[in-house]
Computed example of a mutant assay.
Amino acid sequence: MALYQYVAVDPAGKRVRGMQDAANPVDLELRLKRGGLDLISARPARASQLALGRRVRRQELITFFFNLESLTQAGVPLLESLADLRDTMNDPAFRQIIANMIEGVEGGQRLSQAMAPYPRVFEPVHVSLVRAGEQSGRLAEVFGHITESLKWQDELAAQTRQLMLYPAMVLVVVLAVFLFLMLYLVPQLSGFMQNIGQAVPLQTQLLIAVSEAVASYWYLAAGLLAGAAAGIWLGARLMPGLESRIDGLKLKLWLVGPILHKIILARFANTFAMMYASGISILECIAAARDIAGNRVVAASLEQVGRRIEEGKNLTQSFAEVGLFPPLVLRMLRVGESTGALDKALLNVTYFYDRDVRESVKRIQTMIGPFLTLVLGALIGWVMFSVLMPVYDVISRTRF
């Protein structure tokens, strides 16, 4: 079969673009028709398009796995469940992916095999969990685990966005006020201050010099910042060692670094616990957690842990020798190993770090707001003092 890039129309008359496996254009039209789409045009997809693929919003995935859990628990056959989901999903691209999965299952594939060709939609962790559920006969339970994990990830992502968005907004306001003062207000007043007929104070001279520098060289500063960002991005792509150093630096950043570290550890513990509870081996759990770590330093540490376990060392000792994981994680691993409830112990780690991240985000917001407000007040105060001081001197001399 070949992969075609197509343009079709849904029942509401809206154009839909996507990609679909088919033997030929006629077969493609029939497949799209079964998915509720009418084909307009199609052409074979290029290699670059095959690599890019299409992502699906996390909310759509949560709905997908939640409904699968409910339907499976109710005893609805898998093919009927997938057909219902295909007809009810909002995202046309996701509907098409589900239609492809239905064809794969009808052709003799298991659900995990039908999910595997879409790694940008279904993470390898999800595929491994579904495979384990198929082997153990606990698919409904696995769907429930995946749903809860996706919900938790969505909340964690919202907290991370909240952590970055608020300081960024306040910083933008401070920068906008600074540029307004330097590029508009101070130049308007500088002529008056220089023609008042007396020596201009030092702080006023400094203000005028800063304003002139900003007005003359702002584009140079913006270009340097953009060039530095582009250089770092390009260097990280061309030199893997540099990207690892950047990831290590992220974990050491003031205020943000410790929170990022806790978020990564919480994601690791949640993934590990979910997979281990589904009957997946420890080495596979570590490999999956390594792939979704999102930080090369943590991923390299997990790879070292996996090698130590293969050498015959126990889990807690392997994690302790790496040196990246805090005492709380090691203590919970030790308790989980000794009691045989490793998944529950790691869920406790997830709960602890999740709560700690929430509290840390609130603390940072409480600190950053007043701090940046103080910076803004100091900036405005400096400008006003530098402007009003010469005026006050003129008024005082005129009076006496």
Rank of each mutant, 00 (worst) to 15 (best):
A2N: 11
V9W: 01
N24K: 03
E29K: 14
R31F: 04
G35T: 05
I40T: 11
S48L: 15
S48N: 09
Q49M: 13
A51G: 09
G53S: 07
R55K: 15
R55L: 09
V56I: 15
R58H: 06
T63A: 10
F66G: 11
E69Y: 08
S70I: 14
V76I: 14
P77L: 03
P77M: 05
P77A: 05
L78T: 10
L78C: 09
L78Q: 10
L78S: 05
A83C: 01
R86M: 13
T88I: 08
P92G: 02
F94V: 00
N100S: 15
E106Q: 14
G108T: 08
R110I: 08
L111R: 00
M115H: 06
A116N: 11
A116Q: 14
P119I: 12
H126L: 13
V127F: 01
S128L: 15
L129H: 01
G137R: 03
L139A: 03
V142P: 00
H145A: 12
K151M: 13
Q153E: 13
L156F: 04
Q162T: 09
V174L: 13
A176F: 08
V177C: 05
M182S: 04
L185Y: 13
Q188A: 12
G191Y: 07
G197F: 10
G197R: 10
A199D: 15
V200N: 01
P201M: 08
L202K: 07
L202W: 11
Q205G: 12
L207T: 01
E212Y: 09
A215P: 04
A215T: 09
A215Q: 11
G223Q: 08
L224E: 07
G227I: 07
A229R: 14
A229E: 07
A236C: 15
M239E: 09
L242C: 05
S244I: 10
L253V: 05
W254K: 09
V256C: 00
G257T: 00
I259Q: 00
L265T: 04
A269R: 04
F272Y: 08
M274Y: 03
S281Q: 12
S281G: 12
L283A: 11
L283Q: 12
L283H: 08
A289T: 12
D291S: 15
I292E: 10
G294W: 05
N295Y: 03
V298N: 00
V298G: 00
V298M: 06
S301H: 07
V305I: 12
I309K: 01
E311C: 02
G312W: 07
N314T: 09
S318G: 05
S318C: 05
F319Y: 05
E321I: 06
V329F: 07
L330W: 03
R334Q: 10
G336H: 02
T339A: 04
L342K: 00
K344R: 14
A345R: 00
N348S: 10
R355K: 11
V357L: 02
R363F: 09
R363H: 06
I364Y: 03
I368V: 15
G369Y: 06
G369K: 11
T373Y: 04
A378H: 03
L379T: 12
L379V: 15
I380R: 06
G381D: 06
M384Q: 04
M384V: 15
F385G: 03
S386R: 00
S386T: 06
P390D: 07
D393H: 13
I395E: 09
S396Q: 14
T398L: 14
R399Y: 10
F400W: 08
